[in-house]
């Protein structure tokens, strides 16, 4: 009797906890929406996300430069990180000796544990000067080293461990027999990777990319330290950018006496929340579609 009761209580408690966590997500979204309402009451959503001017004193709130700043830096970081991480993961799971794996994996995990502010500092003292020294002189555009490229590079390195870990795990779940099947037909290791492993791992690789993009969207400190923070739509890799998280982190809590400013910053947070939510939902659908097609 007691044992059954305990079982019931345990199950109810765990259900309650799960419900709370789900509700937290809902409440965050709701809270952000409520606080952005004053701004949304005065301007249309479309106007807010497509206009360019950002002059809080004059009541101009154009979010387009911030959205584009976020997109530029995120896309760039994925473009840099994905090929490098794929090759690393392929090496770790298909080519490397066990002993190399045993050293490399913990080091990569360590990379994941470094606080993002340290990446930011590293970006400021290494990446930014390198860009100023080696890339800016060859560009016709006036620019500093604080730009989209610097943000993309720092962010790419921050998401390396995440992608490498997931993709390597995905590769490791592929049964050895599948490799053997391809090898025994006379395929080389590289051919096996190209035609069999990558194909089989595709859903996992997409899932890893999705997680990495979500992570990159939201990454704040490291990016805001190196990307310039000028509210203009980036025109090239060497333009400065001002991503949404940086906007919020730099300004929230200051000058909130300006009318609608507080509401605008929370609208920025809502935008970020919605972008990630929609992005995750869409990628789930894509993944399900791929899995249905291949099995």
């Amino acid at each position: 009797m007691m044992r059954l009761l305990k079982d019931k209580i345990a199950s109810k408690v765990m259900m309650l906890l799960t419900a709370i966590f789900v509700l937290v997500a809902v409440f965050i979204g709701y809270g952000l929406y409520m606080r952005s309402r004053p701004l949304l009451a005065k301007r249309s959503l479309w106007e807010l996300i497509t206009s360019e001017g950002w002059k809080p004193f004059k009541g101009e709130f154009g979010f387009f430069p911030f959205i584009m700043g976020t997109v530029w830096i995120t896309v760039l970081s994925i473009l840099i990180a994905m090929p490098l991480c794929l090759l690393t993961s392929i090496y770790l799971s298909e080519y490397s000796h066990k002993s190399i794996r045993q050293i490399a994996r913990p080091l990569i995990d360590l990379l994941a544990g470094i606080p993002s502010v340290i990446y930011g500092i590293w970006g400021v003292i290494i990446v930014v000067p390198l860009i100023e020294k080696f890339i800016i002189p060859y560009s016709t555009e006036f620019s500093t080293g604080y730009n989209v490229l610097a943000g993309g590079i720092v962010l790419a390195i921050m998401i390396f461990p995440l992608i490498i870990n997931i993709v390597t795990d995905v590769f490791n779940t592929i049964p050895q027999e599948l490799r053997d099947a391809s090898l025994s037909l006379g395929a080389t290791k590289w051919e096996t990777v190209k035609h069999v492993i990558l194909k089989k791992a595709l859903p996992g690789i997409i899932a890893a990319t999705v997680l990495a993009i979500s992570r990159a969207f939201g990454e704040t400190i490291a990016v805001l330290m190196v990307c310039g923070n000028i509210p203009e739509t980036p025109k090239s890799l060497l333009s400065p950018a001002y991503p949404l998280p940086a906007l919020i982190a730099n300004n929230f809590g200051e000058m909130l006496s300006i009318p609608l400013y507080d509401s605008a910053l929370l609208f920025a947070a809502l935008l970020l929340f919605l972008i990630i939510f929609i992005f995750n939902a869409v990628s789930k659908l894509i993944l399900m579609n791929i899995e249905r097609k291949t099995t």
Binding site: L178, A181, S182, V196, K199
Partner: peptide, 12 residues
Amino acid sequence: GFLSQRPFPLPM
């Protein structure tokens, strides 16, 4: 030609 314990068709 190699046949394993369980069939492993390639993902294609």
